[in-house]
Computed example of a mutant assay.
Amino acid sequence: MNDQVTKISQHGLIKGKSSQTNLITYHDGTTTWMDEGKAVDVYVNFSKALDTVLHDILVGKLRKYGLNKWMVRWIENWMNSRS
C-alpha cells in the first residue's frame, strides 16, 4: 500500500515547491512534448481567479492589450453565464 499522502507532482502546500516551481515543471514538460512533435492540449481553470476580479475591468484590460475581440466576447459570455 502506498503511504504517500500527496503525489510527487503536487506543488501546492509542499515545502520547497510553489506555484512558480509548478509553472516551471509544466513548461518544461509541455515544451519537451512539443519539441518531440507531440500534440499538447492545455486546460486551465480560472474560475477561482475570476471570482476575485471585477469582470468589467478584466474585459477592458483584455481589449486594451489587444486580445482578439471574439476571444474577449467568449470570455465575457463565459463569465456572465456561469454559476
Results as ranks from 00 to 15, higher is better:
residue 64 K to R: 14
residue 22 N to L: 12
residue 7 K to A: 08
residue 9 S to I: 15
residue 58 L to Y: 00
residue 75 I to H: 07
residue 58 L to F: 02
residue 66 G to I: 12
residue 37 G to F: 00
residue 71 M to I: 06
residue 72 V to D: 05
residue 53 V to M: 03
residue 57 I to Y: 05
residue 28 D to E: 09
residue 49 A to W: 02
residue 25 T to A: 14
residue 15 K to P: 00
residue 66 G to C: 12
residue 57 I to L: 13
residue 1 M to I: 14
residue 16 G to L: 02
residue 4 Q to D: 15
residue 42 V to D: 04
residue 72 V to N: 04
residue 32 T to A: 13
residue 58 L to T: 02
residue 72 V to Q: 08
residue 61 K to A: 09
residue 79 M to E: 10
residue 67 L to P: 10
residue 75 I to P: 04
residue 44 V to T: 11
residue 28 D to M: 05
residue 30 T to H: 07
residue 2 N to M: 13
residue 21 T to G: 07
residue 65 Y to P: 01
residue 33 W to P: 02
residue 82 R to T: 08
residue 50 L to Y: 01
residue 42 V to Q: 08
residue 76 E to S: 05
residue 37 G to Y: 01
residue 16 G to R: 03
residue 8 I to N: 04
residue 74 W to G: 04
residue 77 N to A: 10
residue 48 K to H: 02
residue 74 W to I: 07
residue 23 L to K: 03
residue 12 G to Q: 09
residue 62 L to F: 15
residue 65 Y to G: 04
residue 40 V to C: 06
residue 30 T to Q: 09
residue 63 R to S: 07
residue 10 Q to K: 15
residue 51 D to N: 11
residue 42 V to C: 11
residue 51 D to T: 12
residue 7 K to H: 08
residue 4 Q to N: 12
residue 29 G to H: 05
residue 2 N to I: 11
residue 23 L to Q: 02
residue 27 H to S: 14
residue 24 I to A: 07
residue 73 R to M: 11
residue 33 W to T: 13
residue 18 S to Q: 04
residue 57 I to G: 13
residue 42 V to W: 12
residue 56 D to E: 10
residue 81 S to A: 15
residue 81 S to L: 06
residue 80 N to P: 01
residue 38 K to H: 04
residue 79 M to N: 14
residue 50 L to W: 01
residue 79 M to C: 07
residue 41 D to R: 03
residue 68 N to S: 12
residue 10 Q to M: 14
residue 76 E to F: 01
residue 10 Q to R: 15
residue 57 I to V: 13
residue 26 Y to H: 07
residue 1 M to N: 14
residue 33 W to G: 07
residue 15 K to M: 00
residue 80 N to M: 02
residue 41 D to C: 02
residue 37 G to C: 00
residue 63 R to V: 03
residue 5 V to W: 12
residue 46 F to V: 05
residue 45 N to A: 00
residue 36 E to D: 07
residue 42 V to S: 11
residue 60 G to S: 13
residue 33 W to C: 11
residue 7 K to G: 02
residue 71 M to K: 13
residue 36 E to P: 01
residue 16 G to D: 02
residue 44 V to H: 03
residue 2 N to V: 12
residue 23 L to T: 03
residue 60 G to N: 15
residue 41 D to H: 06
residue 56 D to P: 09
residue 13 L to A: 10
residue 67 L to C: 15
residue 39 A to G: 12
residue 76 E to N: 09
residue 47 S to A: 09
residue 56 D to M: 10
residue 80 N to I: 03
residue 15 K to L: 00
residue 12 G to K: 07
residue 28 D to P: 01
